[in-house]
Write a protein that binds this DNA or RNA. Structure first.
Length: 1089
RNA sequence: GGGCGAUUAGCUCAGUUGGCUAGAGCACCUCGUUUACACCGAGGGGGUCGGGGGUUCGAAUCCCUCAUCGCCCACCA
């Protein structure tokens, strides 16, 4: 063919084009692979990258491993699907956008829920595009036609359906319990979203008052304002007498009853052995309070500030301010005994790092311990979610085929341990971005609602315009001018008195005074107070805790006048007076996305609701219809304002992505599941490949949700990769400035090089160190491969197609070198296949019989050099190259495909068939051929060495004598091999004439190669005899030592008796080889001196 | 406090059920402008396998212990 091909591989020039070719071929989509129905499947659900920011090395490594598996399996002829997508990542994304708008000087309350969500969606769309393009850059062969996003219409319905199903099975419930609260995110967190940070803290020893008999110790004095008990160990003699007694204390926020209780959990050695119990603000204390029926006083609000219950001295202060103030108070009253520095594990939010406040709150939970039976579900027969999740995963050393196998299996232990200790999962989040909890509350008019807190006041309150409006809550948005005065008029025209109370001065709010005004309003049931949505920069928060503000109506949002008018007409139909008299609060949201009006209730308020609730399985039930229908259907429908934990939707990922996205065809969930073709074809997925850091967050959730919903495991295997770190093993982070940008590396070294640098040296479950020199090294490998191909394509006359002449597909080998390279190629096929099958990716490439060694050392450095000397065998060159390209393709798809195209192939390498081989895949199969060839290599290397060490140029031709003095040396067959391949030795080692001398009587004893070669080569007079003699002396010395060792071993009766016969035999052989070697060395030494 | 992992050449790592005089790549030293490749070729040096103890004929590999580093879990307030 003799082609002109660039001297160096330039990835930048070809990668994009190749990717385009792949994508346009349609072969990423399994439907186009032309496979039969019965073809084995291979499916990976791509762990959806967060819809935030850009692709980092973690994603890049994940894509490299997955694409490797996917390409390998596709070439194996499997029905291969790699389904890509993105995750909305509620808290992470929301936090990110909040930061962005903060730079513009705004908060989410300024924008309101809708405008804010618009901003989020805008942001998401943008970063999704970035991620998608970068995923392509990595060469990912995923099916873009099946791309999904967790907020897609179909996936969202799946979320609602599963929620409803679980609710009906009583696996989802609403409970008023202590939860982890992040004051920064203003949301609850699941237990595993809380991180612990070690830090020093002061442990204060003090008494509540002078008369109190017990000194307590705490690191959080401010919480003592909510104490209702002191716990001691029942065995503690010091306090035994007090157990059961009740003391009254006053810390400035009213009289508290403190009961002395006994609890075995209390450590006698820590502090004073007495623990002040704060039920509302400590997980431990909460449990004690439950057991002992204690009062729970909530003194810290959702905003992280002290509330009214903490007393007027503390209300409105941050926790830290309150702590300082309270310590001062204790100090002033001489109640502090001592202060000690202790180590403490501070709970912080895994997203924003803010300190977590445990708070009691009404939230939605998934019951993990409730046993249920589901018809047609083989797992759930009187079993709990937790039990099933434990049951379907193989333990270490357990290898049941229909169970999930975790690789590496040590993580199975971690999984089981974690799952066993799982508590009910709190799934509601006070985040705006995400799947809204699909629960609508049917408000029975007349129920008593309690207004909570969360009155937000913005500085920009247009006091002049509207006579000081009250802002009731923060969502909704829009031009107040559009509706506010009009709304007031509407009420008044209906004979309702409207009062718009004064706002507290935002600069210096006197909340108590302001609250008093509200108290007054409450007494007048005919009064309505109109609120208006506005940004909240200042929150009243805890100061208003527990207050009933009476009949408040908040109307938010950008309603047009006519709409408002229409709305109130409807309200009239519903007996507006009745509503007025009974509904304490509601708000009206008009969404620009939806054609209907929803009736909603303020965010925080809803948690205080105690109303009948109705779960609506499919919100689309309402869509397309006007709010009239809603209003007709029931009195008032209020959707829960919270959204679901992002892991709730990701937990469905393997199957929600495979459900028919044209979901409106299906009326019921069961119908949808049963009739989605992709779900039938591709679920359960084959491998879940992801980082070990989300084993609990995600893997565990998928197992829970999928076994429950489908009665099927979500995946057969879990392959966990490690984290990418820098050369020192540190995490890559912006603050350290040690991050590597994958895109920058791709531009510099090419995608293939980057992929290899992440695949090599990585093993399941272990972290990977990555640095630029490493990537550079694999760039060199890629270039070497390029040049090997270049040489072959330039020197071969034409690419035979198919390869011929052939013998079972393998071309005829003429020479020893031919046979040798073919033997090793067969071995490489076995080795690569076995390694990939067993997930030993790095091993496939880097080990003794791996790809690197074959391509660079055996093929390029030996075979190609020999092919320049011997009669050229085009068929073999092409055969080896083609096979090597196929074997390497999953690792380095771009360069291999490019070479394949240079060869003039019509079909894409991507869909070529994986090389076949005979024999066992996990055994190296090397024969006499290999030993013979190694003899040649050994002789050549020895001649080169001697020449090199004696300053003789490799090019300079010398005379060489190969001697064999003893009968255990070279056999006649060996001499035949050497003679046959004499020209190779002469060319590669620079030899003028090659002579043999043998003193052996019999040459048929077979012995190992090292002994045969070492010391035979004699280059005569050309060497520095003194230097060479020294070297040989040293060698003799070492060999003698070795012989002594071997003899000692063989003289040991126990060794001969106990060791397996073949081992003993091996040792004997080694001994005879060494003895022979030493004789040769001595002989040589003699001839030198 | 509990659990897991790591510790092998200057660096990054192999070393699969215990059995080649412990290997590779990079770096290093010497030599080399042979039309595939200097992103290369030839040759070479370099390790008490973290320390100590044990099991065994035999240990980098199995057991115990100590040390250092890293990670995960946990309500010592």
């Amino acid at each position: 063919m003799k082609k002109e091909i660039p001297k160096a591989y330039n990835p930048q020039e070809v990668e994009d084009e190749i990717y385009k070719k792949w994508e346009e071929s349609g072969m990423f989509n399994p439907d186009n692979l032309g496979l039969s129905e019965s073809a084995e499947k291979f499916v990976i659900s791509m762990p959806p990258p967060n819809a935030t920011g850009v692709l980092h090395l973690g994603h890049a490594s994940m894509l490299a491993y997955q694409d490797l598996m996917v390409r390998y399996n596709r070439m194996q002829g499997k029905n291969t699907l790699w389904l890509p997508g993105t995750d909305h990542a509620s808290i992470a994304t929301q936090t990110k956008v909040e930061k962005i708008i903060a730079e513009e000087g705004q908060t989410k309350y300024d924008l309101g829920r809708e405008k804010f969500l618009e901003r989020v969606n805008e942001y998401v769309e943008n970063s999704q595009n970035t991620i998608k393009n970068q995923t392509r850059k990595m060469g990912s062969s995923c099916d873009w036609e099946r791309e999904r996003y967790t907020l897609d219409d179909g996936l969202s319905r799946a979320v609602r359906e599963v929620f409803a199903k679980m609710y009906n099975d009583e696996l989802i419930y609403r409970g008023d319990r202590i939860v982890n609260w992040c004051p920064r995110c203003e949301s609850t967190l699941a237990d595993d979203e809380v991180e612990h940070k070690d830090q020093k803290a002061n442990l204060y020893y003090f008494k509540y008052n002078k008369d109190f008999p017990i000194t307590i110790a705490t690191t959080r004095p401010e919480t003592k304002l909510g104490d209702t008990a002191v716990a001691v160990n029942p065995k503690d003699k010091r306090y035994k007498k007090y157990i059961g007694q009740v003391f009254e204390i006053d810390l400035g926020n009213g009289i508290h009853k403190i009961k002395i209780i006994a609890d075995r959990e209390v450590e006698m050695e820590f502090g004073t052995g007495a623990l002040g119990v704060t039920p509302a603000h400590s997980m431990t204390d909460w449990e004690m309070a439950e057991k002992n029926d204690l009062e729970k006083i909530k003194i810290i609000g959702e905003d992280g500030k002290m509330n009214a219950s903490a007393g007027k001295d503390y209300a409105g202060l941050t926790v830290l301010e309150a702590r300082e103030k309270f310590v001062k108070y204790l100090d002033k009253n001489k109640l502090i005994e001592k202060v000690e520095e202790v180590d403490q594990a501070l709970s912080v939010c895994y997203r924003c790092g803010a300190s977590i406040e445990p708070l009691p709150s009404k939230q939605w939970f998934v019951a993990v311990d409730k046993k249920i039976t589901i018809e047609g579900n083989k797992y759930f027969q009187n079993k709990s979610l937790k039990e099933v999740a434990l049951e379907v995963v193989n333990k270490i050393d357990e290898k049941e085929k229909d169970k999930i196998e975790i690789i590496p299996d040590r993580f199975a232990k971690t999984y089981h341990n974690w799952m066993e200790n799982l508590h009910d999962w709190c799934i509601s989040r006070q985040i705006w971005f995400g799947h809204r909890v699909p629960v609508w509350y049917k408000k029975e008019l007349g129920a008593n609602l309690k207004f909570q807190n969360n009155i937000h006041v913005g500085k920009e309150t247009p006091e002049e315009k509207y006579n000081k409006a009250v802002l009731l809550h923060a969502w909704g948005s829009g031009p107040e001018e559009a509706f506010f005065p009009w709304l007031k008029e509407e009420f008044e025209s209906r004979g309702i008195e409207v009062i718009v109370p004064n706002l507290p001065n935002p600069e210096n709010p006197d909340f108590n005074k302001w609250l008093e005004e509200f108290e007054k309003i409450e007494t007048d049931a005919k009064t309505i107070v109109i609120g208006r949505s506005l940004g909240a920069t200042l929150a009243l928060g805890s100061a208003s805790r527990g207050k009933n503000f009476g009949n408040l109506v908040a109307a938010c949002t950008p309603l047009e006048n006519e709409e408002i008018s229409e709305f109130f007409e409807q309200m009239g139909e519903l007996d507006f007076v009745k509503i007025k008299n009974n509904i304490k609060q509601y708000s009206v949201i008009h969404s620009s996305n939806d054609p209907y009006i929803k009736l909603e209730i303020s965010e925080k308020l809803s948690r205080e609701l105690d109303v009948e609730l109705i779960v609506v399985e499919n919100a689309d039930h309402f869509s397309g219809e006007s709010y009239k229908e809603i209003l007709k259907a029931c009195d008032v429908w209020i959707q829960d304002p919270d959204t679901l934990d992002t892991w709730f939707s990701s937990g469905l990922w393997t199957f929600s992505t495979l459900l028919d996205q044209n979901h409106k065809k299906y009326e019921t969930f069961e119908d949808w599941i049963a009739n989605s073709p992709d779900l039938k074809r591709f679920h359960p997925t084959s491998v879940m490949e992801t980082g070990y850091d989300i084993l609990f967050f995600w893997i565990a959730r998928m197992i829970l949700m999928t076994t429950y919903t489908l009665g099927e495991i979500p995946f057969e295997n879990v392959y966990l990769h490690g984290m990418v770190r820098d050369k020192q093993g540190r995490k890559m982070s912006k603050s350290l400035g040690n991050g590597i940008d994958p895109i920058e590396m791709i531009e510099k070294y090419g995608t293939d090089a980057l992929r290899l640098s992440m695949i090599i040296g990585s093993s399941p479950g272990n972290d990977l160190k990555l640095y630029e020199e490493k990537i550079e090294g694999y760039r060199n490998f890629v270039n070497k491969f390029w040049n090997v191909s270049r040489y072959i394509l330039m020197s071969v006359d034409k690419v035979p197609h198919p390869t011929s002449p052939k013998r079972g597909g393998v071309p005829m080998a003429k020479t020893l070198a031919d046979k040798w390279i073919l033997e090793h190629l067969e071995n490489l096929k076995r080795h690569t296949t076995y390694s990939l099958k067993t997930y030993n990716f790095s091993f496939a490439f880097e080990s003794e019989f791996g790809i690197r060694d074959f391509m660079w050392d055996k093929f390029a450095d030996w075979y190609l050099e020999i092919s320049k000397i011997q009669e050229k065998n085009d068929a073999i060159l092409i055969y080896v190259l083609e096979n090597l390209l196929k074997l390497c393709h999953p690792f380095i798809p771009f360069v291999t495909e490019q070479i394949w195209q240079e060869m003039g192939k019509e079909k894409l390498l991507m869909v070529e068939k994986w090389p076949e081989f005979e024999g066992k895949e996990n055994e190296a199969c090397l024969t006499q051929i290999n030993l013979d060839f190694e003899l040649l290599m050994g002789i050549i290397t020895e001649i080169r060495r001697v020449k090199n060490e004696n300053g003789i140029s490799l090019k300079e031709k010398v005379d060489i004598v190969i001697k064999s003095e003893t009968r255990k040396d070279l056999t006649q067959a060996d001499f035949d091999i050497i003679a046959e391949n004499r020209n190779i030795i002469e060319n590669l080692a620079g030899v003028k004439s090659l002579k043999f001398e043998t003193g052996a009587e019999k040459l048929d004893d077979w012995i190992q190669f090292e002994a045969r070669v070492f010391g035979f080569v004699n280059v005569g007079d050309l060497i520095d005899t003194e230097k060479e003699a020294k070297r040989i002396e040293k060698e003799i010395e070492e060999t003698e030592k070795y012989i002594k060792q071997l003899k000692g071993k063989l003289d040991n009766k126990q060794f001969v008796q106990n060791a397996p016969a073949q081992i003993v035999e091996k040792e004997k052989q080694k001994l005879s080889e060494s003895e022979s070697k030493i004789k040769n060395l001595q002989e040589k030494l003699k001839s030198l001196l």
